Simulated scan of single mutants.
Amino acid sequence: MKGRKAFAGLFLIVTLSLTGITLFADSLGLDDHSGWGRMRTLFFVCNLLACMLIGFYILFTNQVESAIVSIWRRVNDNLLVQKWKDSGFVQPLIYLRKYLFTLPIMTVVILLYIWLISSGTWTTWISPTRHYGTLAQGFARGRLFMPTIPDPRLATLSNPYDPAVRHGIDTPVDVTYYKGRYYLYWGPVPALLLMPFQAVLHTRVGDLQLVFAFTCGTFLLLSILVIYLWELSFKKLPRWMLGVSVLLVGTANPTLFMLNNFKGARIYEAAITGGQFFLVSGLLLAVLALKKSRAYWILALSGILWALSIGTRLFLILPICGMIFVIAYGWLHGKRPALEKAVSLFAIGFPLLLGMLILGWYNWERFGSVTESGLYYQL
C-alpha cells in the first residue's frame, strides 16, 4: 500500500505541475496566443480532474481500494464476463495486468507525442491541413466531393493539372480536381469517422488531430501486441527488455517525424497513420484468432478493420493480402477440420471483399471508374 501511495503522490505532483503549466502558459512563454483555446481548456480540466481523483485516493486509500476490490469481484462473478474473459479478445488485456510497469512508459511516450505535435507548447495545436474535416462536411451534405469552391479560372485552362499553366491560381494542397469540384484521392474512412464528431463540435477537425489520435491508438495496440507475444514466447527474458521494447515501438521513426506539426501532421500523415491504425488493429485480432478454435467473430472483425485500412490508404492492400496469404497457408496446412478452415477464410475474407466493392462504388460515383481513386487528377 505504501508503494501505491508513493506512486500516487508522484503522479499527483506531475498532474499538479501540468495544471500549473497550463494555467500560466502565457507567463511562461509556452503559448503565444492570448486567451484559452479548446485544447488548452480541455487539457486544464483533465489535469484538474486527475488531481482531484488522485487526492481523493490518497486521503481515502483504504476505502477506495476496498470498493474497487468489491466491484471487481462482482464483475468477475458475472457469467457474461466469464464468457468474455474466456474469449481470445481480452487475453492481451489480462496479460497487461501482469506488466503494469509498462504503463508509465506508455504515458511518457504519449506525453512526448503531445509535446511534438504542439511544437513544444503543449496547448497550441495548429493543423496545417483540414482536408478530411472538409470532406466530412461534404459527406454530411450528401456529397462525395469537398464543399470548397474551386477558382472558376481552373475550368478555363487547357491543362489545370500543370503547375506552370495554373500559375497564380490558389488551390488547396494535394487535392484532386475533376469537373469543377475538389475531391480527395486518399481513402474516405477518416472523413466518415469525423462526421459524428464534427456534428457535435460544430467545427472542422484538423488533420493534425487525426494524426495524433491514430498515432496514439497504433502505439497502444502495438504495445498490447508486444506484451501478448512476450507472454507467449519471451517471458523468461529480463522484464526490462519488455519495457525497452514498448519504448522503441512508440519512438521508432517515422512516428515522431510525422507528429511535427510544422513539417508534418497533414493530410499525408493522417492517411498514413489512419491506415496503420486499422492495419495493426486487424493484425492484433488475427494473431489472437490463431490461438483459438472457431474464432469466427474475431476473424470477421479483423477483416472489417483491414477493409477500413484499405479504405484509408489503398496501397495497404498489398501487406494485407500478404498477411491473408500467410494466415490461409497456415490454416490449409493445419490440422483443423475442413469446414472450420472454410468458415474462417470466409469470416476474414468477406468483409474485405465487401469493403473493396464499396470502395469501387465510391470511385465509380466520383470518376466513372472503379479503379480511379483520383490520383490521376491530382493538382
Rank of each mutant, 00 (worst) to 15 (best):
F367K: 04
S369H: 12
F60C: 05
V108P: 05
L208D: 00
G311C: 09
Q91G: 00
M258W: 12
G206M: 02
L353G: 08
G282K: 05
G206P: 02
I310H: 08
G330R: 11
S17T: 14
Q276P: 00
L237K: 15
G120H: 06
A191Y: 05
E365A: 11
I317K: 12
L237W: 15
W230P: 00
K179A: 07
T41F: 12
E231R: 13
K2T: 12
G311T: 10
V189F: 11
I68D: 10
L248T: 13
V249P: 02
L299C: 02
S17F: 14
Q198H: 06
F60I: 02
I114C: 02
L352I: 15
C46G: 03
N260Q: 12
G20C: 09
L23V: 13
Y362I: 01
T22V: 06
S309V: 07
N363L: 03
F257L: 12
L49D: 06
S27C: 00
L112P: 01
M1K: 14
N261I: 00
I298A: 08
G35I: 03
D170N: 10
Y57I: 05
I117H: 01
L290Y: 12
L359G: 01
F367L: 04
G120N: 05
L59R: 12
A136D: 02
T15L: 08
L112M: 15
R239E: 13
G168S: 08
V45L: 14
T124H: 00
G264I: 00
Y99L: 09
M39L: 11
V326D: 04
A300W: 07
T255L: 11
F214A: 05
R4L: 13
Y177H: 08
S293Y: 09
V64R: 05
G322E: 08
G55Y: 07
V90Q: 01
E340N: 12
E231H: 15
I126N: 01
K85S: 10
L352D: 08
K335M: 09
Q209S: 10
L220T: 06
L112Q: 10
P238I: 11
A136S: 06
S27F: 00
L221A: 01
G142R: 10
V81C: 07
